[in-house]
Structures are given as C-alpha cells and as structure tokens.
Amino acid sequence: MNKPLILVVEDDKAVQKLITTTLETQSYQYHTAGTGKGSILEAVSRKPDIMILDLGLPDMNGIDVIKKVRTWSNMPIIVVSARSEDRDKIDALDAGADDYLTKPFSVDELLARLRVSLRRVRYDSEKLQRDATVFTNENMKIDYAAGCVWIDDEEIHLTPMEYKLLCLLAKNVGKVLTHNFILQEIWGSYSSDIPALRVFMATLRKKIEKDASQPKYIQTHIGVGYRMLRVGDDGKSG
C-alpha cells in the first residue's frame, strides 16, 4: 500500500510538533488539526488512514469527535491524552477509539502503536478480517463456517462461551475491547459481571496459550479490557 496518511489532532503546538517530527522521520504523510471541528473536516476531506487524537481540544471533547467519526468511518483512532484515569480510557474506547496512549509518552511507543494500527488497516483493506471464513494468527486457526479452532494443527475443544469470546477478539484483532463492550456483545444485554468474564478468559487462555501465565495472543489492559494481538505485532501480553 502507499505511504499511510495520518491525521494529527492536537492543539498543543509543542506536542503536535513532537508527533509530526516523529512521523517525518518514518516518512509518514500527515495533516494536522487543532480543533475538534477542524479534525472532522480534515477527516472527511482527507480520508486519512489513522487519526491520532487528543481529548482536550479547545472547542469540543475528543470523545465527541470519536463518536462523530464513527458514524461514517472505521479508521483506527489512537487517543493520546494527559487523562490517565481508567474511566477516561474506558469512555474513549467505548466511544470507538482503538487505542489509548497516556502523556507523557515515548516516541518509540507511539510508533509501535502506529505499526499495530497500520497492520489492521492492511488487513481491513484486503478484507481478511471480517469477510474471510478462516482467521489465522500464527499457529492459531479459526474456521468460522465450521465453528472449529486449531492450535498447531491440533483441534482444541472450546465451550460455546469460550468460542464466542475468541471470535469476538479475533474479529477485532489489534483493538482494545472494554469489559462492558465484551459483556454486551457476548451476553446480549448489559451485564456488570466482570469477575465471570475474567474466569471465562482464564479458561480460554489455558486452552490456546502454551504458557497461560505469559500469553501471546490475548493482552490484558488492567481495569479496561482485553485485546487480541496479531502475533508479531509490537506489544507485550499479560
């Protein structure tokens, strides 16, 4: 694919400069916006591949930007914000953000998050995630049509709940899914039974991971939710 286009939405000129300079060193194309309204206009007109978004914008809350963009675009949105409370992260992710990076941040971490999101862009563009009948992730294979899962070419037997969880994570590979989102998607209505979700996730990990104490497929975001990593992406599971 061509060099990706990244929209940087940040009103702090120093932070904006840090991000754009970092993008320049990696030969990424980018445009900038310093307001929420400006970011929406740029997103509509430029059609960027990824948005890097600050939540504290002068004219509107970044959460509202996410919600508006999600009415017409599925592009990855990486929030970069000084807000570090779990509630802020959960609100942003529930609104439709794909990732959340807390200020101050290292440029290496920002680039790592970008690489993960760009892999998602590539897979989406080739329709390998949502349209394929078979999902593969290194030694894992899910045959959606047959309802079967293999690890290292050996079929593993999952309970219906474990299979639903695995498929939900696989169809959103690379994206952080909050506890509330998972509970609503799997149970069909709002549930607050996070302890039960943790139990199901633990049993699932025991079946798909060689070492459940050091998982490579399913990453935990403490207090927030879970994400399936495409093996080989940057990031640490745990």
Rank of each mutant, 00 (worst) to 15 (best):
I40T: 02
C148D: 12
R227I: 09
L183N: 06
L23Y: 05
K141Y: 06
D99M: 08
A202V: 14
K141D: 00
R205I: 10
D11N: 08
V15P: 06
M201L: 07
F200M: 09
D153K: 15
K13V: 10
Y190L: 14
Y226I: 08
I156V: 15
V224Y: 03
K68V: 08
G238W: 12
V44Q: 11
S73C: 09
G232Y: 11
A95M: 02
E155K: 15
F135S: 00
T136G: 01
E24D: 10
G96S: 05
Q16S: 10
G232N: 11
A92Y: 00
R113N: 04
L57Q: 00
I142Q: 03
N61Y: 03
H179I: 09
V116M: 04
A170K: 08
A82N: 04
A33T: 08
W187N: 05
V107I: 13
I66Q: 00
V231W: 10
S189Q: 15
G238I: 15
C148I: 15
A92S: 04
D86G: 08
T220Y: 07
F200G: 02
I142Y: 05
R120G: 03
T32K: 06
D54C: 09
L18Y: 08
D64F: 04
R227W: 07
L55P: 01
M60N: 00
T35Y: 02
L165E: 01
D98H: 11
F181K: 11
T133E: 09
D153I: 14
R83V: 02
A14H: 13
P215T: 11
S192I: 15
N2K: 14
K3G: 02
